[in-house]
Amino acid sequence: MNIFRLTGDLSHLAAIIILLLKIWKSRSCAGISGKSQILFAMVFTTRYLDLLTAYISLYNTSMKIIYIGCSYATVYLIYAKFKATYDGNHDTFRVEFLVVPVGGLSFLVNHDFSPLEILWTFSIYLEAVAILPQLFMISKTGEAETITTHYLFFLGLYRALYLINWVWRFYFEGFFDMIAIVAGVVQTILYCDFFYLYVTKVLKGKKLSLPA
């Protein structure tokens, strides 16, 4: 465990908690893509099935349980408790265009053709693109609440920090996982445009709004 990995995990945790608290405190999920949140719930579910088969550490197990728990809680808030505030009209990304190709790819390109490994690979590929419905929604409405941008920033930062972690692990441990690295690079690239807007607008106290 290096500092980049740890801060990456904490950044991921911060993102998840920020989103959950935003919805809970405002009693509203306006501007949040329920589809992205369902995809993230799928990501955590398919990746952390090894909770049932392998024990790594107390840290590992607790974080996995927290991520899964918060993810399902978020989906519950959006689609049940605060359903009336869910902006479904703007959440129109066709998720089958992500899930089907990602499912196919995880069967074709994986480390081992076994159920658990294919599901893990699926989760890695799906996570790389799971934010697209949310970004699509923002591009459609042309704006995002500031708290939503903080969520996106920490979510993007997490994978960027993992990239540095993988460079570190390659040099100091000789460890590398090509699937995770390539997907992680793709995932981070998808946030670049957003990072630019976050730094040039949100951090200067302006609301994130896109030109019409």
């Binding site: 990746r47 090894d50 088969t53 480390h111 893990w120 996982d177």
Partner: peptide, 10 residues
């Protein structure tokens, strides 16, 4: 090679 159960990263 790092396969199947026991991924240490989240």
């Amino acid at each position: 090679e790092r396969v199947s159960s026991g991924k240490d990263e989240l």
